[in-house]
Computed example of a mutant assay.
Amino acid sequence: MSPRSRSWTALVLPPVAWFGFEQGLSALLHARCNLAGWGLAWGAASLIVCALAAWLAWPLARRGGDLLATLWLARLALALAGIFALAIAFQTLAILLVPPCVG
């Protein structure tokens, strides 16, 4: 995988993981609210995707690449992986705090 495609993949994965977590969990809980336990597994899988993105970007952010843009994209991907991982973690913890079948 080229440094450019690696940095773009690392940049795109965290928002896609977060969006999939949000929409997938919402659809699951609207259909069957008693399956909230799956939300914890879904959140863990989404966090793993964010960790994968950080793993892809880490070597490029440290040493750079052939282009300054690749270095910048890799560092941006690391920041996005952290931000989206934090959002996913808090939303996963909310599954434990708020009962899904209220109403």
Rank of each mutant, 00 (worst) to 15 (best):
L67W: 13
A61G: 11
L73E: 02
L68A: 13
A45Q: 12
V49D: 09
W58L: 10
R63C: 08
W72H: 09
L78W: 02
G43P: 08
W72R: 10
A41V: 15
S46L: 04
S46N: 06
V49R: 00
L56C: 08
S46V: 01
L60Y: 05
G39I: 06
L47Q: 10
A41D: 14
R62Q: 10
A57P: 06
A69T: 03
C50W: 03
L68K: 09
G43Y: 02
T70V: 15
L80R: 04
L76I: 01
A45Y: 11
R62T: 09
R63H: 13
A74R: 02
L71H: 10
G37H: 14
G37Q: 11
V49Q: 03
R63M: 04
W42Q: 14
A57R: 01
L68I: 05
R75F: 02
W55D: 14
A54C: 00
R63W: 05
G64P: 03
W58F: 10
A61P: 09
R63A: 13
W58E: 13
W58P: 00
L78E: 05
A61K: 00
A61F: 02
L76A: 06
L56A: 03
A44H: 12
G65D: 10
L60Q: 07
R75S: 01
W58M: 09
L73V: 08
D66V: 04
A74D: 03
L52E: 14
A44M: 12
C50S: 06
G65I: 01
G64K: 01
W55I: 06
W42M: 15
L52D: 12
T70K: 09
A74G: 00
A57M: 03
A45I: 11
A61W: 02
G39R: 06
W38A: 13
L47H: 08
L47S: 07
C50N: 10
L56G: 07
A54W: 04
C50Y: 07
A79V: 08
W42H: 15
W38K: 09
P59L: 07
L80A: 11
A51T: 07
W38I: 15
L40Y: 15
A57E: 04
A53L: 01
W58N: 05
L67P: 02
A74P: 03
G64E: 01
L80Q: 12
W38S: 11
A79I: 01
W55G: 13
V49I: 14
W58A: 09
L71S: 06
R75C: 00
T70F: 10
L73S: 05
A53P: 02
A45V: 13
L67R: 15
T70C: 12
A45G: 13
L80V: 03
A69D: 08
G37Y: 12
L80Y: 13
G37K: 13
L60M: 03
L80F: 07
A53D: 06
R62S: 10
